[in-house]
Design a protein around this nucleic acid. Structure first.
Lengths: 248, 248
DNA sequence: GTCTATATTCAGATAGAC
DNA sequence: GTCTATCTGAATATAGAC
C-alpha cells in the first residue's frame, strides 16, 4: 500500500492517508489532525494544498474517480465500436461498468480495496457537498451507460431499467463498503475495518465473481407487470433446485 | 409525522426529532443542540434521558428495530408453521424479510420513510459502536432467515446464499437510503433529503414493487460455477427481449 | 513549501438551583 | 424532570516567521 512507498511528495502523502482515514472513520469522524499525524506532515499543509477539509475529500475522490470513469467511458466506447451499431449484451454493459470498478480492488495503483471501501461508504453520506460532488463526477458516465442499457434491453420500459441500475449500484456499493451486519455475524467479508485484509486481492476477486451473476440476475428478472400477469394466469411454483441446475 | 402530534412526552419528542436530524445529516453531522432546539426541549434532557449521544442513537434504533425484527420473526414463524415442515419458497422468505421492512415506508407509526432512510444511511456507517450495535440487534433475525433460505434452496451452496443475502441487503439498504448519484441526476427517487416527499407513501409502495422482483432475480441467478460451465459448453447469447417476454 | 502559534467556534457533558 | 450556566476538549482555519 501507499504508506510503504515513503512517498516524499507531501501532497500525495496527504491524499494517501486521507483515503485510509476517511475510509476507516468516515468524513465527519476523521479530523485533519488524524490525517496529518498519520502521514507525518504538518497540519497546515492540508489547507495549503487543498484549501479546506472539503477540498481534500474532493481531491481524494477526483484522483481515483477521474481514472475510473475515464476507463469506463473508454471501455464502453471500444465495445460499441466493435459491435458496429448492434446493441451490446446486458452482460457486456455490466462487465464494463462494474467489472472495471471491481478490478480496482486488485490494483493498489488505483486505490485497491481501501478506495473501494471508501467509495462504498461515502456513496450514502448525506452531506450536501458530497452528494453534489458525486453527481457531477458521475453525470457523464451514468448517462452513457443508461443509454447503453436502454439499447441492450429495448423491450424493457426505460423507467424500469433506471430502477434496476439504481438497485445494482446499491448492491455493489454496500458490498464493497464491507460494513454490514452480516459480516460481523458470519465473519464472511472483504476485510476488516482497521485497514487491509491479509489477502485483499483474492477477496476482491471472489467478490467480483459472486457479484456479477447476482447483478445480471437482478437486471434480467421478470418485470413486476409480467409477474402479476403470470400470477393471475397460473400461480407459479418454482423449485429451489432450478437455480443450481439451470444452464440456459 | 410525529412533529405534528405535539407529543408532550419529552423523551419521545427527542427520539422523533433525533430520527429526523440523524437521517438528514448523519450521526457525526448532527449535534445534540440541533436535535434539542428542533424538538423544543432543553439540551440537558438528552443526557438525562439517554446518558449520551451514543445512547440516544441506540435508542432511536432500538425503538424501531425492536418492532421490525420482532415482526420479522413472527411472520417467519407463522409461515413455517403453515408449511408444516416443508421448505418455504424463496419468494416467501424474501417477502417476509424485505416486505416487512418496506411496508414501514407506508406506516408512519413505525417511522415511515424517515426511519427507512435513516436505516439505509446508517447501515454503512463505519463507527465501531454503531456496527456492534447493529450486529447484536440483527443477530437473531439474520440467523433465522439464513436457515430459512438454506432450506428453501437446498441445492445451492450455503456460502453462496450468504453472499447473495449480503447483496440483497445492500440493494435494499441503498435504495431506501435514497442518496445516490442516480437520483440526483435522473430526479427519480424516493424523496428529497430535507424531509418528507410530497407523497412518500406511494413512493414507498412503488419502491417495494420494483425492488422485490430484482432481489428474487438476483437470489435465483445462475451460480458462477454454472455460468462458467455453460460458457465452456456453448457460449451463451441471450436476447434482451427474453426479459420482457418471460412469464415462466 | 513548511512550520509554530493561535484565533475562533462548537462539540458533548455536567453541576446544581428549582 | 427541567432549567441555566459552565467546564473542558477538540475542531477547522489562518497569520506570519522561516
Amino acid at each position: 500500500m501507499s504508506e510503504n512507498k515513503l512517498n516524499p511528495d507531501t501532497r500525495e502523502r496527504i491524499l494517501d492517508f486521507a483515503e485510509r482515514e476517511f475510509m476507516a472513520y468516515g468524513y465527519e469522524g476523521t479530523s485533519m489532525r488524524m490525517i496529518t499525524s498519520a502521514a507525518g506532515v504538518n497540519l497546515a499543509a492540508v489547507n495549503y494544498h487543498f484549501g479546506s477539509k472539503e477540498g481534500l475529500l474532493r481531491e481524494v475522490f477526483r484522483r481515483r474517480l477521474g481514472w475510473l470513469n475515464g476507463e469506463r467511458l473508454r471501455v464502453l466506447t471500444t465495445l460499441e465500436e466493435q459491435a458496429k451499431g448492434t446493441p451490446l449484451k446486458p452482460s457486456q454493459v455490466l462487465e464494463a461498468f462494474f467489472g472495471t470498478l471491481l478490478r480496482i480492488g486488485e490494483d493498489d495503483a488505483h486505490g485497491g480495496m481501501t478506495f473501494l471501501r471508501l467509495l462504498g461508504r461515502t456513496l450514502t453520506d448525506p452531506a450536501e457537498f458530497i452528494r453534489t460532488f458525486f453527481a457531477s463526477e458521475y453525470a457523464e458516465v451514468i448517462e452513457r451507460y443508461k443509454l447503453a442499457l436502454f439499447r441492450a434491453l429495448p423491450d424493457v420500459p426505460r423507467a424500469e431499467i433506471v430502477w434496476r441500475l439504481h438497485f445494482m449500484l446499491g448492491a455493489m456499493s454496500y458490498a464493497i463498503a464491507g460494513t454490514d451486519v452480516l459480516q460481523v455475524i458470519t465473519g464472511l467479508g472483504i476485510g476488516d475495518a482497521a485497514g487491509e485484509a491479509l489477502d485483499a486481492k483474492s477477496e476482491a476477486k471472489k467478490l467480483a465473481e459472486r457479484l456479477m451473476p447476482f447483478l445480471l440476475g437482478g437486471l434480467r428478472a421478470p418485470l413486476p407487470s409480467a409477474m402479476a400477469a403470470a400470477k393471475r394466469a397460473a400461480p407459479t411454483r418454482r423449485r429451489a433446485s432450478d437455480l443450481a441446475e439451470k444452464k440456459r
